[in-house]
């Protein structure tokens, strides 16, 4: 019992350390600009205000940016969930010629600094007429190396016998994939879905380069308009950071139960 108490105490202490910057930021977003930078600082706002949020929505097309970010992130999630698990399945369970070379290419894509390919990629997007479109923002990352890596690793742990049994029964690979493998992958898919969502949601440089009109801006791109070197407006920036983080928090809460489903998976071993 005492050991358990210690575990709780340790976890709680860790949580305080981890969450403190968030709590502080959230509270700061309700302070007026002058109070944010007061010395000595206040923890709770002396004077609660929604001015930062009001300013945020007044200054930028926040609702539009929110919508755009959602579309882009959901499309990226859908693409990655389907495609990464397909590719991962092939790498894990289907021996084929050229597999090692292909897996090498997956790793190459993972290891290349993104800035190197940005301008050539933009030239390609432009030549396809996809500048300033959702497709242009999404396509290059519709299937990502991390996702393939993650799914391959996870599917490799699914017992071969399950797949074989289905093959002996004459099931087609696509049926095996959709009806046997995918349902077993829920925990991995939840992880991948969340990671893809937030990567896309937080993505900055690529959407900023491809989106050429304000009605195509995603949240981070819209927020970047007023964070310039000369006069950074902290209140707006902090409120913006909160608006960016909140949806991710909600989605994570919603996906919690899938994270716990690792247990159902264990039953198969």
């Amino acid at each position: 019992m005492t050991r358990r108490m210690w575990t709780y105490a340790g976890l709680a202490a860790g949580l305080v350390l981890v969450a403190f910057p968030f709590g502080w930021t959230l509270l700061a977003s309700f302070k007026p600009e002058s109070e944010i930078r007061r010395d000595p600082p206040t923890f709770l706002p002396d004077q609660w205000t929604f001015a930062n949020y009001a300013g945020l929505f007044e200054r930028t097309q926040m609702d539009q940016a929110f919508f755009n970010s959602t579309v882009v992130a959901l499309a990226a999630v859908a693409g990655n969930l389907l495609f990464c698990s397909m590719v991962g399945y092939a790498f894990a369970k289907l021996p084929f010629r050229g597999r090692n070379v292909l897996f090498g290419l997956v790793l190459v894509q993972l290891m290349v600094p993104a800035i190197v390919v940005m301008i050539p990629q933009f030239v390609l997007i432009a030549s396809f007429g996809l500048v300033n479109t959702f497709l242009g923002i999404i396509l290059p990352t519709i299937v990502t190396p991390l996702g393939i890596f993650l799914m391959r690793q996870f599917i490799a742990d699914i017992p071969d016998e399950l797949v074989h049994a289905a093959r002996v029964d004459g099931a087609r690979e696509f049926r095996i994939f959709f009806q046997i493998v995918l349902p077993l992958c829920k925990p991995a898919l939840a992880t991948l879905g969340l990671i893809t969502f937030f990567t896309s949601w937080n993505g900055f440089i690529w959407p900023a380069v491809v989106a050429q009109s304000e009605d195509m801006y995603t949240l981070p791109v819209a927020l970047a308009i007023f964070s310039n070197a000369q006069a950074t407006q902290y209140g707006l920036l902090i409120a913006g950071a909160v608006v960016v983080v909140l949806p991710i928090l909600v989605i994570f809460l919603f996906l919690q139960r899938y994270f716990v489903q690792g247990t159902t998976f264990t039953g198969l071993k």
Partner: peptide, 13 residues
């Protein structure tokens, strides 16, 4: 949730 939060937060925040 608490421990995972920093990982999924935008670097701006």
């Amino acid at each position: 949730l608490g421990y995972y939060l920093p990982y999924i937060t935008s670097i701006i925040g």
